[in-house]
Amino acid sequence: MTPEELVNRYSAMVYNLALRLTGDRADAEDLTQEALLKAVNGLPGFRGDADPGTWVYRITVNAWKNLLRAKAKWRFLRFFSADDPKAVDSEPADCPEAAPGPEALAQAQDLRRRVESALAELTPEERAVLVLRELDGRSYAEIAESLDVPLGTVKSRLVRARTLLAQKLGPEDA
């Protein structure tokens, strides 16, 4: 695989993963670039028989963990300075896509809002499992490897994510 192929093939999924890990568009863009550049640099040492997706997602998750550590350090430093820390984790900005009829649009927007409100109650790690399963159809074993967690953790996170989504989508929440 060439660097171009790697970037073309995985940038959309890495971005979605990064967006749900960070919960912020600007951070997700930075993380996507960082992770893919790291993957490109590591390409010569990559074993051809391994799955490139799992490997790229793992790099993304590790880069996110490093970002968190750096932010925690930054917050710790800011604690001693004058101005109070500003929230960095805003909800991803909504960008309305091509407009169908007004009714269908309203319905889609409503569903989108419900999905986002469920995601907001999940942890980044739970959202990551959901992204890899639902948007990329990854197996539990691949997700476990990408996130460096046991298989049981993948199962339980997925159940929590689906239960919360179902709750928000359910009629009782209408």
Binding site: Q33, V115, L135, L165, L169
Partner: peptide, 22 residues
Amino acid sequence: AGAAFREHGRRPLPAGLLGRML
């Protein structure tokens, strides 16, 4: 729940990001 996330949870790559990386 899965179908709703697949349909409404995916976000497109921000404009220009792919080009910048390439």
